[in-house]
Computed example of a mutant assay.
Amino acid sequence: MSRPDPGAADEHPRHEDYSTRHALTPIELPLDDGEASTNVDLKTQIIRFIITGAGSGVLDFGLTILLQYVVGTPFWIAKSLGFILGTTTAYLANRRWTFQAEPSALRFFAVAALYGVTFFVNVGLYTWLSHQWPEELLYSFIAYVIAQGTATVINFVVQRLVIFRIR
């Protein structure tokens, strides 16, 4: 993959990242060339948050069910590992695409604290509901939807109103 010639006409506009002496890490690769900001309108943020959440949810639920029903892992451990995979994916996509926010150590720690809270809400609800119902795929799915839905609402509100306003 070649880098654009800095002297070339605007056929390939020079991006600020081309001037660095090191390559970007895969986590920081831009998903678009727009200037990162938090000035994305609410409707766009909600749509992007739902798309990101759906993809992350598939990863979370897929790993949870794989571990729980195929490997035989206890449901609280399976859900914990699914949650970690799903929320890590969601954070990276939401930071760059949904909220278009630059990396920030303070924001990262705020998200880690939020995910700590939603981890206990999500895994706690899933575990509690799993104890109430038979351990069958349909009931696991319903428990997942309830737990994930509750955590998703908490995540969106706190991320939009607090975390992605942090500079």
Rank of each mutant, 00 (worst) to 15 (best):
Thr20Asp: 15
Gln159Asp: 03
Leu114Asp: 06
Gln132His: 04
Phe119Leu: 09
Glu35Asn: 02
Pro30Ile: 09
Glu11Gly: 02
Gly55Trp: 02
Val123Arg: 11
Leu137Ile: 12
Pro13Gln: 07
Asp33Lys: 12
Ile154Cys: 13
Val145Ile: 07
Ser19Tyr: 12
Gln45Asn: 05
Gly62Tyr: 05
Gly82Leu: 07
Arg165Ile: 04
Thr98Asp: 13
Ile47Phe: 15
Ala101Trp: 08
Gly116Asp: 02
Ala105Met: 11
Gly7Ile: 09
Phe119Ser: 05
Ala93Gln: 14
Gly86Val: 03
Arg21Val: 10
Tyr69Ser: 12
Tyr144Gln: 14
Val162Lys: 01
Thr20Cys: 15
Glu28Gly: 09
Glu136Trp: 00
Ala93Ser: 14
Leu42Gly: 00
Asn39Met: 13
Ile163Arg: 04
Gln159His: 12
Phe120Trp: 13
Thr52Gly: 15
Thr152Val: 06
Phe109Ala: 07
Ile163Asn: 08
Gly34His: 11
Ala93Gly: 11
Lys79Leu: 08
Asp41Gln: 07
Pro74Arg: 10
Ala23Lys: 09
Gly53Met: 01
Pro6Ile: 05
Arg160Phe: 01
Lys79Asp: 10
Lys79His: 13
Phe75Trp: 12
Ala105Thr: 15
Leu59Arg: 01
His131Phe: 13
Thr89Ala: 09
Asp10Asn: 15
Ile46His: 10
Ala23His: 10
His15Tyr: 08
Phe156Lys: 08
Thr89Cys: 08
Phe49Val: 05
Arg165Lys: 13
Pro134Asn: 12
Val40Ile: 13
Ala151Ile: 04
Leu63Thr: 09
Arg96Gly: 11
Arg3Gln: 10
Thr44Ala: 13
Val121Ile: 15
Tyr139Asp: 11
Ser2Arg: 14
Val162Met: 02
Glu16Pro: 12
